[in-house]
């Protein structure tokens, strides 16, 4: 009895402490709505974390404002893969590039049910259909650009290219491919898949758009003695027409986008920068400052010029998407998957 008395305070303390504990079971995320609506919307590719296999594609319905955090898993019963880099809508199909899974998944844009998988890549980044039932896929580590047969959904050839290739663009029967490590833009004849020209820009060439005047613009993050810069290319001469350098710093230009009219360039450099295609100097300050956010994705709605901005926060939680009007007025926010990286409008 004496011993029981001695142990009693001990037990009481234990019970009190246990009562203070917190439940560790997480709340189940809300089930997806099952595909997209019929109207206009924007797909947000979320990279997820390297080697975590938590890449997702979220969807924002422009008319209703409804958000689906993950389209793929509910439709296919399995996660999509590791590091979703980009997505392209073509011929009634969506091609989703899953970088560290080395694949491009082909899904229905509305149901997101997978119909095919194109495999055999090392580190695919961007997908571009180039006509004749073909597409090019830049492959970061492969030292080549893959040629994909869209009828068989298989790789039919390789175009050698040393260095790491990123975004690409089709203009006048030629594919223009940014090469980050070499600081070049490769020009490939899509009829013959042959490299026909190379344009030297600045190191870190990462993204490319075409403006209303038919010129090409390339964002370069600089490095190796070359400055961060926006570079304008004349595709008729395949030559650099103008270079808009920036001072080298922690934040350098990337994620270059253009509005539907093709007259205003937008890019990330910490905050969002804007530049009219006719401007003679590069913008000195941000159009939308970062304000403590980790801005990682940028997209411009080609119809109404709405600016979609992705905040990856700390990379290990849900990303936040901001919508801004063309004038820079904030319209609202919504949450998506981990590390939103690109937007795809439909």
């Amino acid at each position: 009895m004496n011993n029981v008395k001695r142990v009693f305070p001990f037990l009481l303390a234990t019970l009190l402490i246990l009562a203070g504990c917190k439940k560790d079971k997480p709340e189940e995320p809300l089930p997806g709505t099952g595909g997209t609506g019929a109207g206009r919307g924007v797909y947000i590719t979320n990279e997820g974390n390297f080697q975590w296999g938590n890449a997702t594609v979220s969807y924002y319905d422009i008319a209703t404002g409804m958000v689906t955090e993950d389209l793929f898993q509910p439709a296919n019963g399995a996660p999509m893969g590791d590091v979703c880099q980009s997505m392209y809508l073509h011929d009634g199909k969506a091609y989703v590039v899953v970088n560290n899974s080395g694949k491009v998944v082909v899904v229905d844009p509305s149901t997101f049910v997978q119909s095919a998988v194109i495999t055999g890549f090392q580190s695919p980044r961007y997908f571009l259909p180039v006509g004749n039932g073909k597409a090019y896929v830049t492959d970061y580590y492969a030292g080549s650009i893959a040629v994909v047969d869209l009828a068989t959904n298989s790789i039919s050839g390789q175009i050698p290219s040393s260095g790491t290739t990123q975004e690409l663009l089709l203009h006048g029967g030629k594919a223009y491919v940014t090469n980050e490590t070499r600081g070049e833009v490769h020009v490939i004849d899509v009829a013959t898949d042959a490299l026909v020209d190379t344009i030297v820009v600045s190191k870190g060439a990462n993204s490319i758009v075409q403006d209303a005047a038919g010129k090409l613009w390339v964002a370069c993050s600089g490095g190796g003695g070359t400055p961060p810069a926006l570079v304008r290319i004349d595709p008729l001469a395949n030559a650099v027409e103008a270079t808009f350098p920036f001072a080298a710093g922690a934040a350098n230009p990337w994620r270059l986008c253009i509005n539907g009219e093709g007259d205003k360039l937008y890019f990330l450099k910490g905050g969002v920068y804007r530049m009219a295609i006719g401007d003679t100097v590069a913008p000195a300050s941000a159009f939308i400052p970062a304000d403590g956010r980790n801005l990682y994705a940028l997209g411009i709605d080609p119809e109404d010029g709405t600016i979609f901005l992705g905040d990856a926060v700390d990379y290990v939680q849900q990303g936040v998407i901001y919508r801004y009007g063309p004038g820079g007025n904030e319209l609202g926010t919504f949450q998506v998957g981990t590390i939103p990286g690109s937007f795809c409008f439909r």
């Binding site: 560790d24 403590g292 956010r293 905040d311 926060v313 290990v316 939680q317 849900q318 936040v320």
Partner: peptide
């Protein structure tokens, strides 16, 4: 908070 939108405040470390 580590950044403007940080939802990790008050949450268990990974």
């Amino acid at each position: 908070p580590k950044t403007a939108n940080d939802a990790s405040v008050g949450k268990q470390l990974i």
